[in-house]
Design a protein around this nucleic acid. Structure first.
Lengths: 116, 116
DNA sequence: ATGGATTGTTTCGCTACCGTATCATTACTA
DNA sequence: TAGTAATGATACGGTAGCGAAACAATCCAT
């Protein structure tokens, strides 16, 4: 696990990766949506609206709207929590996994070309 | 220059950094705006609207609008090219440099905590 | 000098996001 | 069984983004 970045290198890595992301076909999410998606897929469940809102430091409607949009894109899925039917559990989907896989590819691809 | 990332590590790094960015006070730019800002500051000038649009693979109005917004935030500045007055040259500002410096700090800070 | 090409901007109609406030549903508690 | 608390969703007015098309200013070639 070598994450030895100096500020300038970190920015260059981000630059290439974001450029790759923007240029890609992938539907362009907002920073908040992307952040949310990464959190849902990289942090162990369960994820609730309230929990996600607290994690990102945003209001609940922001999370609800983001889930609407990303749900329509097939990147996440909502289900009711049966043990406490006030809760909504956010689940991963195949589409979301593919999206993140593609993102990971972009990052390492650009990072590699950067190192040359 | 150690940018040796495997896909999963790359995503985790992005996750923490983006979380830090979203939670930060910094005005939240769109992916395209952030990408544009990074490009302007990390790639040698001169930068023109047309050139930036081609680099990002977006239309010119997207760049014009992004420059409007980021200009209002003091992150970039426009001047006319005197040698060909059709061109607009995009210049860096102190505010933009500070913004990116802060972003770099967030990335390496989160990356370091990730490595523990 | 005039016609065409090129640059960046603006306009149009539309969609999506924002924060605040309110709402409906469900759970808990006295 | 009320009454309160908590969860997620919705309504509202406003802002800002989008692509496509039209635009003004400038350059250049003839």
């Amino acid at each position: 696990m070598t994450v030895n970045l100096r500020p300038s290198e970190a920015l260059h890595l981000w630059h290439s990766a974001m450029l790759g992301l923007v240029r890609s076909e992938a539907p362009d999410l907002t920073l908040r949506q992307l952040s949310l998606l990464l959190h849902i897929y990289l942090v162990p469940p369960p994820h609730t609206v309230r929990g996600l809102a607290a994690t990102l430091g945003v209001t609940k409607p922001v999370v609800t709207r983001a889930l609407d949009s990303m749900g329509a894109l097939g990147l996440v899925r909502r289900i009711r929590d049966d043990r406490d039917r006030r809760n909504v559990i956010i689940q991963r989907t195949v589409g979301g996994a593919l999206y993140l896989e593609k993102l990971g590819d972009i990052i390492i691809k650009e990072g590699r070309e950067l190192a040359l």
